[in-house]
Structures are given as structure tokens and as C-alpha cells.
Write a protein that binds this DNA or RNA. Structure first.
Length: 598
RNA sequence: GAGGGUGUAGCGAAGCUGGUUAUCGCGACGGCCUGUCACGCCGUAGAUCGCGGGUUCGAGUCCCGUCACUCUCGCCA
């Protein structure tokens, strides 16, 4: 087949300046705008690097005029021409290349473009499912181009930083053994071994630990992870982690490394200065103060424990909950210019609290000299100063309470109110507020299953003071675990790992895996641990979420080239899809379709 | 598995307590236009108002169901 010839670009659409005056150039790109004045034609030609104005003058040949008249938006073309300065009054200060234009001598249409399903960069953003179906067009928008660059810059900066710190980038398999904890696995049927399956990794957790046993010392990987769970704005079934692990380290080594990494990367990628060290909050303090383990520290509203005051009040509902061992927590909504604390708004706040289990949201408006009005104020007569001082309320503020017998639900409900207030009252400052959450509980009791399970995963080291008493009170055991939180999102999670066979087996037993089952499922790890495993630990920042936050977006779809939608479908290629019977036969699979609903 | 929101022309939107022929901007198509830069001007086509049912003299509008998308709870070590 003959090679197709076209006029190949000599420069890009973002690079020409005054200095290039009179240069002969060839540009390749897409028709971004086309302003036709009859005998005079302006074309904004776009590529990844920018936009340059191409002019077809009135002295153009008939052939050139004809081609120019044939152009439509998003035609892919090659322009051969001469750079010239624009007349002073025609300079466009909004454009990087606004001082020059290219007078076209020849235009070649490299490929035509069908009528567009939506317009590119016209200010009206189409619905997301349409954007995803035509992702190749969506990717041409300035926003997507910028975000893909940001993501590249971020990953590249991480690679440079870690490489300079003696990390090896090592790939681990994407088809591995299914392990029975955590999220639901994606399974890959084996053709060669009927009835057997590989699993796609939920993370390379065990593999990186075994790399440490293998003496790799410091490892990282840009690792794709797969979890078969329902999607959200900040998660989907496949995502990417900066997975890393180090030998001979303690917790603070991992935390400092990450502080240095993010300090370096944010500076390099965004010219943003992070503090040398990030704030550290224990899990308990985070819940008590902010109501959740991923607090948004861009604003200051804090939760307060007001059990004592609730007990002293005359409000029977609060007193009953406290006397039954429950909790009453309060926060102060600061006076706001943007939102009036109307009945309607308080109901909206209450709805936010109810999602997380609160039965109601009690409120008091604070007036001059701590006079209380409305809501439950009548039950706090005589306690005004004490309560206002406890929650830090001033004139014009509103105090909001959640009472619940369950501490976590109490926290979570009021935390939802806090988050809503932050948004609605414009309390959130534009910044990147990292913090560490440490001292997580190692185990959680699963009521449904009737046994303890790992709150994080089963390979995290218990803190040393609990080592002798793990089995007696698993609920009280704290682990050497840490999460990194940024602006209300969990962006990394890690731990110091167990590297002792016996200790690992004890953890398995507490989580209801007897030695036989542990050996079946995790034998390869236990076996490795028999051969001189080093103490080790690591962490795995989520790249999608981090880049999303850096790009000031609220959905990871905005920083993934080809995301799945919330129904786990890829609208562009229409996956998942049915396969041929022959493929099923090869894999020894029979589909057991669910019965249709009545 | 559950709840909220959205669905009107190719795209983005308006359409009030139900009432003539369902608007507007962009785009498409045809024409005009010599300095635009979201060019401008004139004209044309384009919508079973997501789908199905109901209430009503009359439904884009109200009710029920259903589908799609989206946010959230559950779930996500």
C-alpha cells in the first residue's frame, strides 16, 4: 500500500511568536473556529499545544479559496504558510499566539469530521453519558487536555522523586490468586484449568510484601487496582494507586517520605508550597472533633461533646439518650451573609444528618449576650453562657445538636451537617489541607458474620503494647496504620506490616481463618515469611483522587481518559458486553441468568 | 438492595397555579459579507416534550409505573 503523504508540521499551534515573523511554517491541527468573511477567511487552528489564527487572504488562489470554503469545525487539516505580524489594532491579548497569524498558501484536508454530537469548548457542557460515548471529542476540550497533562506531570514527578530515593519501579502481575477478604474480586476464568480462576488485584498488597522478603528494599509501582463494588464520584471499579513499600522502616519513616514526596510534587507540578509536616490526628480525635476519619480541614467548624450539658438541661430526649449511654454532640454554625438560618434551611441540614442515622437535628439561635431563641432553647435556660462558651457561639450563630445512642452514627450525622455548612456558608478556603489519621483500630466486629475482621487489612502490625493481649479484647487493639487525608478525601492508606508467621496466624485466627484455611489462602505469604522477612511497611496514594483534587474537580472521571459510568458501563465501547458461545465454551462457563423480577 | 435529582430539536437551556401553532442560544443547511477572534446579517430545516398508562373537555405541566443518566446510603480490607 502506498504511503499517504501529507504536509507534516514544522511547528505547533501554540508556539509561534513575533520572533517567527516571515517564517515559512506548516501547521497540523483541527479547525477550532472558522470565521468566513467571503473573500477573507479566519481559521483558528488547534492542537494540544494551543491555537493559532490562520488567514486565507483575498489574494488567495481560487483553489485555496475553494478548500477554505469546504472547511467545517473539527476537520483535521495541514496549513502551509507564512508567519506575519498582526496589525497593532488586531492583536488579540487573550491568545498566547495573538500577536501573529499564519497567511495560508496551501490547505490540505487530512480528514473530514462528521456533524458533531456536541460542540467542543463552546461553554455548554453536555451530559456526562454523551461526553463518555464521544470521549475522543471530549478529550479535545481544553479542560480534558489540561487535566491529562496534570496527571502526566504528577505521575512523572512521583517517578522522579522515588527514583532519586533509590526506589525500584517493579511491575506485579494483574492476574493473581483470589484472596477472600476486602472487596469483591474481579475473576478471570482459566481456559487451561476448568473451574479455576485468576483474580484481578484489589491492590498489589501481598506481592509487594513478598518483594520486600525478596530484598528489593524499596519498591513502587503505578498500579491498576480492581474492586467489584458500586461506583461513586470518587471511586470506580478500576483505579490507579502509587503503590509503594519499604524495608527496615518504622511508621514515621513512611510519613516523612510522603510529606517530602507531596511537598516536592506539589511544588513542581503546581508551584504550591505545602507545610514541611502534615497535621496528625488520631482516629479517635478525628471522629470526636470532626465526626469522620477524613475531615476537611479547609474550614474550622468543630464538633463538641455536650453530654454533661445535655444531662443538666431539661430536654428529656437528650437526657434519656445520655443516661442510656448515648452521645450528644454539638457544633456552632457561624453567622453567614450568604445563608439565612431559616426553618427551611435547618430542615435541609436535618435531612443531611438523617442520611447517616440521626433521628433529628436540634437547634438554638444565639442572640445578643448569649440569649437563646427557637428550637430547643427553652430546655437550656440558665445554661446559655456555659453552652455558648463550650461550642464557641457568638451573636448570630446557630448551635446544632445530634443525639444518638451510637457514637459513630452521632459523629457521622453531625459531620454531614458540618460538611454541608462548609459548602453552603462558603467557609471552605481554597487550599490543600493534608492531614494524617493515625492509631486506627485494627479490628472491627462484623455483626452479620458474627466475628471480628480487619478494619483495614489483615497484614497490618498491631501497636506493640497490644501484642500480648490481642485475643482478649480485639476491639481495643490499635494498629500501626495511617491514612492520608486531603480536603475531606482519603487519598492514601498504609501501614507497617506484620513480618512474623506466628503473629500473622494469630491475626488470621481472630478474623475467623483457622490455620488450615489461612494456609490455603495465604500460604504463599506465610511461606515467604519463613525465610527471613525484613520489617517493612508502605502506603498507597490514590492517583485518581489526588489529581482530581489538584484539578479542583469532584469526580475522578475528569482525570481518567476512559472512565466507566456509575453503572459500571463504558458508554464508548459499550462494555461489558455479551461474548460468543464459543468463548464461553473455551472457558468452560455456563451462564446462570438471574430470574426476572415479578 | 434503598432514597433524592434530572430527562423538552444534534448540543445547552426556558416553558408559571394544566389552556391557541412548544420558545431561546449554539450547531446544521442555503445566501450575503475584506480584519474577524464566541465575527456579523438574511433565510430554511429540525421535537411523537425518555417510554407506557391514568386523571381531565384539554397534559411538556398533575398522578402511577417503567427506563436511562446522575448524586447519596448500604457496599468499597
Amino acid at each position: 500500500m502506498a504511503e499517504e503523504v501529507f504536509s507534516q508540521r514544522t511547528t505547533t499551534c501554540g508556539s509561534l511568536t513575533k520572533a517567527d515573523n516571515e517564517a515559512k511554517v506548516i501547521l497540523n491541527g483541527w479547525v477550532h473556529r472558522d470565521r468566513n468573511h467571503g473573500a477573507l477567511h479566519f481559521i483558528n487552528l488547534r492542537d494540544r499545544y494551543g491555537i493559532t489564527q490562520v488567514v486565507v487572504d483575498d489574494d488567495a488562489s481560487e483553489e485555496l479559496q475553494a478548500v477554505a470554503n469546504e472547511l467545517h469545525l473539527e476537520y483535521c487539516i495541514a496549513v502551509t504558510g507564512t508567519v506575519r505580524l498582526r496589525p497593532d489594532s488586531m492583536i488579540n491579548p487573550e491568545m498566547v499566539t495573538g500577536e501573529v497569524e499564519v497567511k495560508a498558501d496551501k490547505i490540505e484536508i487530512l480528514s473530514k469530521c462528521a456533524p458533531l454530537p456536541f460542540q467542543i469548548d463552546d461553554g455548554n457542557e453536555p451530559r456526562e453519558d454523551l461526553r463518555l460515548k464521544y470521549r475522543f471529542l471530549d478529550l479535545r476540550t481544553q479542560g480534558m487536555q489540561k487535566r491529562m497533562k496534570l496527571r502526566h506531570d504528577f505521575v512523572f514527578a512521583c517517578r522522579k522523586f522515588l527514583s532519586a530515593r533509590d526506589f525500584y519501579e517493579i511491575e506485579t502481575p494483574t492476574m493473581i490468586k483470589s484472596t477472600p477478604e476486602g472487596a469483591r474480586d474481579f475473576l478471570v476464568p482459566s481456559r487451561i484449568y476448568p473451574g479455576k480462576f485468576y483474580a484481578l488485584p484489589q491492590s498489589p498488597q501481598l506481592l509487594k510484601q513478598i518483594l520486600m522478603v525478596g530484598g528489593m528494599d524499596k519498591y513502587f509501582q503505578i498500579a491498576r487496582c480492581y474492586r467489584d463494588e458500586d461506583a461513586r464520584g470518587d471511586r470506580q471499579l478500576e483505579f490507579t494507586q502509587l503503590d509503594l513499600e519499604m524495608s527496615f522502616v518504622k511508621r514515621d519513616d513512611v510519613l516523612s517520605l510522603m510529606e517530602e514526596l507531596f511537598g516536592s510534587v506539589f511544588k513542581e507540578v503546581m508551584d504550591y508550597d505545602l507545610p514541611l509536616h502534615f497535621r496528625r490526628l488520631s482516629y479517635m480525635d478525628a471522629l470526636n472533633t470532626y465526626g469522620c476519619d477524613k475531615p476537611d480541614l479547609r474550614f474550622d467548624v468543630e464538633l463538641h461533646d455536650v453530654n454533661d450539658l445535655a444531662q443538666k438541661s431539661s430536654f428529656a430526649t437528650f437526657k434519656d439518650i445520655v443516661s442510656q449511654g448515648g452521645y450528644v454532640k454539638a457544633l456552632c454554625a457561624p453567622k453567614s451573609d450568604s445563608v439565612e438560618f431559616s426553618r427551611k434551611y435547618i430542615t435541609a441540614l436535618e435531612d443531611a444528618a438523617k442520611i447517616y442515622g440521626a433521628k433529628g437535628l436540634a437547634w438554638i439561635k444565639v442572640g445578643e449576650n448569649n440569649t437563646f431563641t427557637g428550637g430547643v432553647s427553652k430546655f437550656f435556660v440558665g445554661l446559655e453562657d456555659e453552652l455558648a462558651s463550650e461550642v464557641g457561639a457568638k451573636e448570630g450563630d446557630m448551635i446544632l445538636f445530634v443525639a444518638h445512642e451510637n457514637w459513630k452514627k452521632c459523629c457521622a450525622s453531625l459531620s454531614a451537617v458540618r460538611t454541608k455548612l462548609g459548602k453552603d456558608l462558603n467557609l471552605i478556603k481554597k487550599s490543600f489541607e493534608f492531614c494524617w489519621i493515625i492509631d486506627f483500630p485494627l479490628f472491627e466486629y462484623n455483626e452479620e458474620a458474627g466475628h471480628w475482621e480487619a478494619a483495614h487489612h489483615m497484614f497490618s502490625m498491631p501497636q506493640v503494647e497490644y501484642l500480648d493481649t490481642l485475643e482478649q479484647d480485639p476491639g481495643s487493639v490499635k494498629g500501626d496504620l495511617y491514612d492520608l487525608v486531603l480536603n475531606g478525601y482519603e487519598v492514601a492508606s498504609g501501614s507497617i506490616r506484620i513480618h512474623d508467621v506466628e503473629l500473622q496466624k494469630r491475626i488470621f485466627r481472630i478474623c475467623n481463618f483457622d490455620d488450615k484455611e489461612a494456609e490455603e489462602r495465604f500460604g504463599f505469604l506465610l511461606n515467604a515469611f519463613r525465610y527471613g522477612p525484613p520489617p517493612h511497611g508502605g502506603i498507597a496514594p490514590g492517583i485518581d483522587r489526588l489529581v482530581m483534587i489538584m484539578a479542583e474537580q469532584t469526580s475522578i472521571h475528569e482525570v481518567i481518559a476512559f472512565p466507566k459510568n456509575t453503572a459500571a458501563i463504558s458508554p464508548m465501547d459499550d462494555s461489558p458486553s455479551l461474548v460468543d458461545q464459543q468463548q464461553l465454551d473455551d472457558l468452560h462457563l455456563i451462564i446462570n441468568y438471574p430470574k426476572p423480577k415479578e
